[in-house]
């Protein structure tokens, strides 16, 4: 396991040192020996950001729904559905969306349908259960501590949640967004299948984009070979760095709120 970190880091640094200028450029042109991965870094960043923001808002809503806003029966159905959703393979999400969401976006908004917007909707759906589970466990702990006090103060369950539990579990709620961001940035299949894979700086939500993860998958499975590989190791190194950092920050926030 340590080997994994060492390998990827060494190869990434190796790649960076050998061809620093062209790697961090913004032009991807294997024939012209230009391997800029900046557009992909940009794509990865904005896609995971947008997906985790969308997912986070809905996850917050779902957690509130489960904890007293919805009727008991619906809440149980929702939490069961969320549990099943953790088991849905990402490739199935992607497959269904290619034939369902992509035509919808194409007809509704124009463009090819394979875009930033499509990928972030599906990606947010994929990371949602993880975030809800994290929020749910925080809510449950705090609710059990404050329930009796706030009932004694005459607060309803809904008021308790909005005015007492939410502010208290702020750190948890924020850190669950981080968890979602980590997962979103690491996913490969959804961006590959839905985001169009064009190497460019996506500005409008309808632009196609290629993320770092999709880049690794596409280049390796189509065997470009040679110097193009270096860009992959750098891409892998960045992904590794992001996931590790997100995880460490997540642990730090959680550890502090434990005390």
């Amino acid at each position: 396991m340590a080997a994994l970190f060492v390998f990827i880091t060494v190869y990434a640094l190796d790649g960076l040192i050998k061809s620093p200028a062209s790697l961090l450029g913004s032009i991807w042109n294997p024939e012209g020996k230009e391997f800029g991965i900046l557009p992909m870094i940009w794509a990865s960043a904005i896609l995971s950001l947008s997906a985790s923001v969308i997912g986070w808002v809905f996850a917050l809503g779902c957690s509130c729904f489960i904890h007293g806003y919805g009727s008991k029966r619906l809440a149980r159905i929702l939490s069961n559905v969320l549990r099943i959703m953790t088991a849905i393979p990402t490739v199935v999400y992607g497959f269904a969306s290619v034939f369902l969401l992509v035509p919808l976006i194409r007809n509704g908004f124009g463009g090819s349908g394979f875009s930033w917007l499509t990928a972030s909707i599906v990606l947010s759906l994929m990371i949602l259960p993880t975030m809800v589970l994290a929020m749910d466990s925080a809510f449950r702990t705090i609710e059990s501590e404050t329930e009796i006090t706030s009932a004694a103060l005459g607060l309803t369950k809904e008021q308790n949640l909005a005015l007492v539990v939410l502010p208290t579990s702020k750190k948890w709620i924020l850190s669950s967004a981080l968890l979602g961001f980590g997962r979103a940035s690491g996913d490969t299949l959804i961006p590959t299948m839905l985001a169009g894979n064009a190497v460019q700086y996506a500005i409008s939500p309808l632009d196609a984009m290629r993320t770092l993860t999709a880049h690794i998958g596409l280049v390796l499975s189509s065997d470009v070979g040679g110097t193009a590989y270096y860009s992959l190791f750098v891409a892998g190194g960045i992904l590794l760095f992001v996931s590790v950092t997100a995880n460490i920050i997540f642990r730090m926030i959680r550890g502090r709120s434990h005390e």
Partner: peptide, 30 residues
């Protein structure tokens, strides 16, 4: 109590969003 109401609206929208997209997706595949 505005906050409570806002949260309630959000929770209903999200529950609907999740349930609807889940059933749409799975239903479509099946």
């Amino acid at each position: 109590m505005n906050r409570v109401k806002l949260l309630k609206i959000l929770s209903y929208i999200s529950a609907f969003f999740v349930l609807a997209s889940f059933s749409l997706l799975i239903g479509f595949i099946f």
